[in-house]
């Protein structure tokens, strides 16, 4: 997929994975890269950015099988942002889909 195109929607894709539950970095990179060709490095940068923007917070939680994991939690601000942006994106995709059909 085109990089420019990807950039706009990647933030939303990451945020969307956090709607139902908090997740840790590796888990997120697995989820995303299963569907999209994105390097893990880039995803960590996105995580850093959405954290800096206040859309997510992080906290450490002990894991059963190893060292503590950093979990990402969607904030209210992140949720609002996601809802709004997602609606726009979906609408855009729907229209684009019609045109491309």
């Amino acid at each position: 997929m085109n990089t420019q195109f990807k950039k706009g929607v990647l933030d939303l894709c990451v945020l969307n994975q956090l709607i139902r539950e908090d997740r840790y970095g590796y888990e997120l990179t697995e989820l995303i890269s299963r569907e999209l060709e994105v390097t893990a490095g880039t995803l960590y940068l996105i995580l850093k950015r959405i954290k800096d923007d206040g859309y997510v917070t992080t906290y450490l939680r002990e894991s059963d099988s190893g060292p503590a994991r950093k979990y990402y939690h969607l904030t209210e601000k992140g949720r609002d942002y996601l809802q709004k942006q997602k609606a726009e994106w979906l609408e855009f995709l729907e229209k684009a889909g019609k045109l491309l059909a």
Partner: peptide, 23 residues
């Protein structure tokens, strides 16, 4: 973040090189 990622990757049986490539 990456240290953690390496650790998780290793736990999942990935090699260092593989993880570096993923990053």
């Amino acid at each position: 973040a990456f240290e953690e990622h390496f650790a998780e990757g290793k736990r999942n049986g990935q090699s260092e090189e593989e993880i570096v490539r993923e990053l």
